[in-house]
């Protein structure tokens, strides 16, 4: 929609390029207010992202930690089995 608007606007006033055009609705107060809102929203988003990243990180590291536990157990079992084999061969 915007793309269609832009060339239309450009062709409508081709000779007024250098003419002075006052900016309306952009007084200092509004600008500051908008900036404050934007800053707040940005802070909220940043904080949200931080929380989300922590939550996901904790989740996956928990599973990874349990995986390491399982792996260590498997190694111990393999050693146990090797020890058993050795004893059987001795006997």
């Amino acid at each position: 929609m915007r793309r269609e608007d832009a060339p239309a606007a450009a062709t409508a006033k081709p000779d007024k390029d250098d003419a002075y055009e006052p900016v309306t609705g952009r007084d200092q107060e509004t600008v500051q207010c908008v900036r404050a809102c934007e800053a707040e929203a940005a802070a909220k988003t940043a904080s949200d992202y931080e929380h989300v990243v922590w939550a996901y990180g904790v989740l996956w590291s928990l599973f990874a930690g349990y995986g390491v536990l399982l792996w260590r157990r498997a190694v111990a079992q393999r050693q146990d089995l090797a020890e058993l084999r050795r004893r059987i061969d001795e006997a």
């Binding site: 904080s47 949200d48 939550a55 989740l59 928990l62």
Partner: peptide, 17 residues
């Protein structure tokens, strides 16, 4: 225990926000 820990940690993180 593992999944519960996950729930109990992610929950408060969500709650904190």
């Amino acid at each position: 225990l593992v999944t519960g820990l996950g729930v109990l940690i992610t929950g408060p993180i969500w709650g904190h926000a």
